[in-house]
Structures are given as structure tokens and as C-alpha cells.
Simulated assay, not measured.
Amino acid sequence: MSTPSGFDELIHPSTRLSVVALLAATEWADFSFIRDSLSLSDSALSKQLHTLEEAGYLEIHKEGGGRKRRTKVRLTSRGRTAFEGHVAALRAIVEGAGPTAAPATPPPDPGQTSDPTTQQHHAEAHR
């Protein structure tokens, strides 16, 4: 199977995909919100943001100074387009791998039976 159009190797790693998905749902997000939402360390998130920023997928804005410094992040239009294309490519992969026939029914649980009379007797025996 060939890789569908729009699949983005830069976005695909799970941490970057999580960052971009989170940012796609908002205009701007605080660094601390992203970090806490994804359970990442400051350094791990900084590295991923830097990679995405270098690719032109997001913009980082720092305001204030010292302990009051806030870092805000947003997807650029290029980043949003790349994310949407990647999601479409992932959907194409999933749909292409889907079953062509009805799924098999799971085997019955050995402790269960479909006969209501047997079920009632089984339940009464355990009382």
C-alpha cells in the first residue's frame, strides 16, 4: 500500500501529532496548558515546538519577562493545512484497511449460554 497524499512525516510522531491536534482546536494556547494537557516536561515540549516552528507549522509568541513570562503558541495556516491533510491521509489508511465482510461474531463465553432456561438454572445453582 502506498502512502496517501497529505501524509506528513513531521507531524506523524505521536507527541507532535498531539501538539498539533491540540492547537488545531484553538486560536492560541499557553505553553503551560499544552505541557499539562499532554503530560510533557518543559524540555520535551520545547523541543517539539521548536521542530514544528522551524517547519513553519506554528508561531511562538513570548510576552512579559522573568517569572511573569508567558509563551503562547498557535498553528500557522501552513500548519493547519498540513494537519488537515495528515488527518485525511490517516483516515484514508484506516478506511483502506477496513474489513470487506461482516466481522466475525466472537465465540460464546463458556460460562454463558443463550438458552434462558439454562441461564436461570445456572443462576439458581449459584445462590
Rank of each mutant, 00 (worst) to 15 (best):
residue 88 A to H: 03
residue 29 A to G: 02
residue 47 K to H: 13
residue 1 M to K: 06
residue 71 T to G: 06
residue 86 H to S: 04
residue 28 W to I: 03
residue 80 R to D: 11
residue 31 F to T: 00
residue 126 H to Q: 13
residue 118 T to D: 13
residue 29 A to Q: 11
residue 29 A to L: 15
residue 50 H to D: 11
residue 126 H to C: 05
residue 122 H to Q: 08
residue 125 A to V: 03
residue 112 Q to I: 05
residue 24 A to T: 02
residue 125 A to P: 04
residue 1 M to I: 06
residue 88 A to F: 03
residue 67 R to K: 13
residue 116 P to L: 00
residue 69 R to E: 10
residue 60 I to M: 09
residue 19 V to F: 13
residue 10 L to V: 12
residue 26 T to E: 10
residue 76 T to I: 00
residue 46 S to A: 14
residue 42 D to Q: 09
residue 69 R to M: 12
residue 27 E to V: 07
residue 54 E to G: 14
residue 8 D to F: 04
residue 85 G to Y: 01
residue 54 E to L: 15
residue 11 I to T: 01
residue 125 A to S: 12
residue 20 V to C: 10
residue 14 S to A: 08
residue 72 K to L: 15
residue 103 P to G: 00
residue 64 G to E: 00
residue 78 R to G: 10
residue 120 Q to W: 12
residue 88 A to P: 06
residue 104 A to E: 13
residue 118 T to I: 07
residue 121 H to Y: 14
residue 101 A to G: 07
residue 86 H to G: 01
residue 24 A to H: 14
residue 9 E to F: 15
residue 37 S to C: 10
residue 36 D to Y: 01
residue 85 G to K: 07
residue 61 H to R: 14
residue 48 Q to W: 02
residue 93 I to G: 06
residue 28 W to A: 01
residue 95 E to K: 11
residue 31 F to H: 09
residue 67 R to G: 02
residue 111 G to F: 15
residue 87 V to R: 08
residue 34 I to N: 04
residue 98 G to K: 08
residue 38 L to D: 09
